[in-house]
Design a protein around this nucleic acid. Structure first.
Length: 282
DNA sequence: AAAGTAGTCAACCGCGTGCCT
DNA sequence: TAGGCACGCGGTTGACTACTT
């Protein structure tokens, strides 16, 4: 028993959108709105398209103020920081980048940013190796000290995620990119060979969460980026060892914005005591 | 110039979730 | 409370383009 399809695939057009279809959809939505019902929209608008397809086309391409391509350094930094914190929650990451869509961010990550990081890591192995050797000297605790799934307990060092404010986003954008470690050809061997101390593997629980909708229960959905074994997670492991939360906190401009209350917050204490960066050792 | 390969990105797919009845 | 429906999301696919041989 499969799921009931959202529309009759034989009756709808698929594939790339024509300029005429774009115009029809754009004009209709601008004039009437979506009416809160994408499924019914194509029929009303006179389009032979699935409602989901219309929604996607509108959100990713036709809606106003969409930006395509040309990601800036600031946007790169935001993506990197957020990816490190929350994994592949593309919609959350995109929400911090005005004009960007989750699809855009996802594509950008998969096709460019990931490779860019790997390339950067290859060019500066010395500091990166130092970082890799020290990052896991102190094991993360087996459980997080507070329930950061509730808004009042959300991590204070990433206010951008709570407020959506542009100022905060710019604050995060000033976080410098970390040095990256040299990626071994066989990442599995990195653990057994001691590059990553075996006693201190990646945290088995997500170390941060952004909104109440994020589950910290690894058993619940299997969607946690820390507990799957995809290529991306290996990459995240490598990347994560180079970009630590204290790197974020050490960012001079950002640090100034932290209040005493934020510094005294339990989740701050966790990060500031458990991890330290290679840069702080130099 | 042609064929093969790699890169990019728009679009699709299917699942989880929340809302409504 | 349960079931149906639609939305939103992340992962994946495939068409197209650029580059290399």
């Amino acid at each position: 028993m499969g799921r009931t399809p959202c529309c009759d695939k034989t009756q709808v057009k698929r594939g790339p959108w024509s300029p005429e279809e774009d115009n029809t959809l754009k004009n209709y939505v601008e004039k009437h709105g979506t009416g809160g019902n994408w499924i019914a929209l194509p029929q009303k608008a006179g389009l032979k398209r699935c409602g989901k397809s219309c929604r996607l086309r509108w959100l990713n391409y036709l809606r106003p103020n969409i930006k395509h391509g040309g990601f800036t350094e600031e946007e790169d930094n935001i993506i990197l920081s957020l990816y490190h914190n929350i994994g592949s929650r593309w919609s959350v990451i995109a929400s911090q980048l005005p004009g960007r869509t989750d699809n855009d961010v996802k594509n950008y990550w998969n096709t460019k940013l990931k490779k860019k990081l790997l390339a950067a890591g290859k060019t500066s192995p010395s500091t990166a190796t130092a970082a890799a050797a020290t990052n896991y000297d102190v094991a993360p605790p087996s459980s997080f000290p507070v329930d950061i799934t509730t808004p009042e307990n959300m991590s204070p060092y990433f206010p951008i995620l709570e407020t959506n404010s542009h100022q905060h986003m710019l604050g995060a954008a000033q976080i410098p990119l970390p040095e990256l470690m040299e990626i071994p050809e066989n990442i599995e061997n990195a653990y057994t060979s001691g590059l990553f101390p075996a006693a201190n593997p990646l945290p088995q629980e997500p170390v941060s969460s952004l909104s109440p909708s994020f589950s910290l229960d690894n058993n619940a959905s299997g969607s946690s980026s820390w507990t799957t074994s995809s290529e991306d997670d290996k990459f995240l492991a490598e990347f994560g060892s180079g970009l630590l939360h204290c790197d974020v906190l050490n960012s001079f401009d950002y640090q100034e914005k932290l209040s005493d209350d934020q510094i005294n917050h339990p989740s701050f204490a966790y990060y500031s005591s458990s991890y330290y960066s290679a840069s702080s050792l130099e």
